[in-house]
């Protein structure tokens, strides 16, 4: 795997395939990038698990913090590591103790540890380094295009509706109970001529 340039299909397959993501280094402080990414991915339907020993007992957007990957207590598909490069290896070592093994190790924007990546790949995991899953999701969905960012994708297909099609709304203001002045007059004319 060339970790200097990932193909879009590689990233797309990972983001499409994983359902649960443990975020190591998730912060409850709402101006930290880890908080943005956690919230964004939770809103996109991922089962998010915040991992941070400093915040055990608290929760992040309703999800309780756990101290380490080994405390999650259920299978997890992807480990998203929000730590600097020098702190990656212990997290990967811990991830490789999980049973079943996670499918993906993802190191956040700015983080890269080639030795840790090689170790995870040798165990059959996929690895992404120095990328943000929020940015990659936004790019491959073209949502990030709203910020003038080059998604590096093009399409002549209609994109999925942001919601699941037009939905019945109970919030629309009604004007005239569905009848118009003209329909009232037409009804009157009809009864007059009868």
């Amino acid at each position: 795997m060339n970790h200097d340039a990932y193909g879009d299909d590689y990233i797309r397959e990972i983001l499409h395939g994983v359902k649960s993501i443990a975020m190591v280094g998730a912060s409850p402080v709402n101006v930290r990038p880890s908080y943005f990414a956690f919230k964004y991915l939770a809103q996109r339907g991922y089962d998010m698990i915040p991992v941070n020993p400093g915040h055990v007992g608290k929760s992040l957007l309703g999800k309780p913090f756990v101290a380490s990957l080994l405390d999650i207590g259920r299978p997890v598909d992807m480990i998203d590591i929000f730590r600097s490069s020098s702190h990656i290896m212990p997290v990967v070592d811990e991830a490789l103790k999980l049973m079943p093994l996670p499918k993906v190790i993802w190191m956040q924007l700015g983080a890269r540890d080639d030795a840790a990546a090689a170790k995870a790949e040798a165990a059959g995991l996929k690895v992404v380094m120095n990328r943000c899953p929020k940015i990659e999701y936004g790019r491959l969905s073209s949502e990030i295009s709203w910020m003038g960012v080059n998604s590096r994708t093009i399409s002549a297909k209609r994109a999925p509706m942001p919601t699941r099609g037009m939905q019945l709304s109970l919030n629309r203001m009604s004007v005239g109970g569905g009848e118009t002045g003209a329909s009232d007059r037409a009804a009157k004319n009809k009864s007059d001529s009868a």
């Binding site: 295009s145 093009i154 399409s155 002549a156 209609r158 994109a159 509706m161």
Partner: peptide, 18 residues
């Protein structure tokens, strides 16, 4: 990678989802 002329026509634009 698409060529320059393809990008000049398509990049950034896709059919309106709504």
């Amino acid at each position: 990678l698409p060529g320059f002329s393809t990008l000049a026509v398509h990049a950034g634009a896709h059919p309106d989802p709504t």
